[in-house]
Nucleic acid binder design. Structure first.
Length: 451
RNA sequence: GGCGACGUGGCGGAGUGGCUACGCAGCGGCCUGCAAAGCCGUGUACCCGAGUUCGAAUCUCGGCGUCGCCUCCA
């Protein structure tokens, strides 16, 4: 098995992937809080971890990908209230949108998509243990995590407790022993319509404990990869790590991966900046191929420019691959392919360097295009590479050939050309174009491709 | 202010102490009746300053700039 290395936020270095159980890899990727439609920025982790799973499977691992859906959260209450609908109803509706929108990416579903509301028992259990171990305390129906009880706290995000801004504010401040402490459980407040009974009162879970509990339930403590956007490193992942460390006496995950933010106009895409683009809108305008190609074009850890220009670039790359695919035959690839295929997978093995892998794809395309016209080039290797990136469909024939009428026009054009009636030939080409097709003159006669 | 990341050719975006990233766009050529697609060629790219080195865009230090996070708020 090829050695795979991934960047671990905790150590700040590349770490070899060494599964807890040989041959098996668990990935937990923090998903969205469903209080509105997701924007294209939210799609990046979905794509990154879906593709990482494909790569690991290609390398022979049995992979379980868990991407949670946070459906109990302050933001949901805040969004539901003005709409006059129960918060759970809003969450359900937005979760359905989320599934439909991400389905549009054509990358399948994660193996598990747990809803926080369905794992409250596990959260209550973990909180109970934390209280028993003096890592947490209940106050007036709230439960807080005692940050200073965890010597490892701050390690993931490389922050010193002493450096942390002793921020004011927060209505829980007066009940906390220490301003650093964060909520594991929150007593139900007026206007909050979802709550569960617990030994310390009626209420609902804090955000961080949700992920600790769901990840543990589905993957067990000490699984391989925990991922999410780099804006979640602190406090969310720091707190998640602390909860499991103190409650279970073991690290939740071996490697903490963080993907970079999408940039729109040089800034993080966020509602507060007013620069959001909804995922379904982008998919409709540019197509899922372009979106996936764009995401693959930048390293997952870095920021990535997303705008009409970069999407158009990505669409052009898609066309180039698809164009090359038209000339390929089924079956094994030529000898020259092996080295490029190796480059491709080696790039992914080294911190999932998809842009470098993509460079190998385009080198492959150029080699194939350069092959003598009479030499059939088998597309098997290219298909294998693109499949890992979720782009194998580029090699498949577009649905449906040209309509009869267009074929007739093309035939008429052949006749016109052989009669050297180029005016008529050009007129027919325009007519074909108006019908949505491009006619090309090739050695064998002509070729019709969708415009 | 603190912590972290980053500043690469027109644009996007990799990478390495000395050797072509890749793609898009542009320019020249081949092919074509003309195109399209493809192929070939082409751009004195690495924020600024100093240092280390035979040699740095790649290492070190300083500066400037950008981005993310800074605790119930992705």
């Amino acid at each position: 098995m090829r050695q795979i290395r991934l960047h671990d936020t905790h150590t700040g270095a590349l770490a070899p992937l060494e599964p807890r159980d040989p041959g098996r890899v668990g990935i937990y990727a923090c998903g969205p809080t469903v209080y509105n439609r997701i924007h294209i920025g939210n799609a990046r982790p979905f794509v990154v971890y879906s593709l990482l799973k494909r790569f690991l499977e290609h390398e022979g691992y049995a992979v379980t990908l868990v991407a949670n859906i946070t459906d109990v959260n302050d933001k949901i209450y805040d969004a539901a209230r003005p709409l006059g609908v129960p918060s759970q109803e809003l969450a359900d509706r937005m979760a359905a949108h989320y599934r439909a929108d991400t389905d549009g990416l054509g990358l399948g579903r994660p193996d598990h998509e747990p809803l926080a509301s369905e794992y409250v028992d596990a959260m209550v259990d973990l909180i109970g243990t934390l209280i028993e171990r003096d890592a947490a305390y209940a106050v007036e129906g709230d439960v807080y995590f005692r940050v200073r009880s965890d010597p490892g706290y701050g390690g993931l995000s490389h922050r010193l407790i002493e450096d942390m801004d002793q921020g004011e504010g927060g209505d829980g401040l007066s009940r906390k022993e220490d301003p650093l402490d964060f909520a594991l459980w929150k007593a139900q407040k007026p206007g909050e319509d979802t709550a569960w009974e617990t030994p310390w009162g009626r209420g609902r879970p804090g955000w961080h404990i949700e992920c600790s509990a769901m990840a543990e339930q589905l993957l067990g403590v000490g699984f391989e990869i925990h991922g999410g956007g780099n804006d979640l490193t602190f406090p969310h992942h720091e707190n998640e790590a602390a909860q499991t460390r103190c409650g279970r006496g073991a690290e939740l995950a071996r490697i903490w991966m963080h993907n970079g933010m999408l940039q729109l106009g040089g800034e993080k895409m966020a509602k507060s900046v007013g620069n959001i683009a909804l995922l379904p809108d982008v998919l409709r305008e540019h197509g899922r191929d372009a979106v996936v190609m764009l995401f693959c074009g930048g390293h997952y850890r870095g920021p990535l420019q997303l705008d009409d220009g970069t999407l158009a670039d990505a669409a052009a790359r898609v066309r180039r691959v698809r164009e090359a695919g038209r000339r390929l035959t089924d079956g094994a690839s030529p000898a020259w392919s092996a080295a490029l295929k190796e480059e491709f997978f080696a790039a992914l093995a080294e911190d999932f360097n998809s842009p470098r892998a993509l460079a190998a794809v385009f080198d492959w395309v150029r080699a194939a295009n350069s092959s003598p016209a009479d030499a059939a080039v088998g597309g098997a290797d290219l298909h294998e590479m693109l499949d890992v990136l979720g782009l194998a469909n580029l090699l498949e024939d577009e649905a449906g050939g040209p309509p009869e009428a267009v074929v007739a026009l093309a035939e008429a054009r052949v006749a016109a050309r052989s009669a050297k009636d180029f005016a008529e030939s050009d007129r027919l080409r325009e007519e074909i174009a108006a019908a949505g097709w491009t006619v090309r003159d090739v050695a064998a006669g002509y070729e019709l491709v969708p415009a």
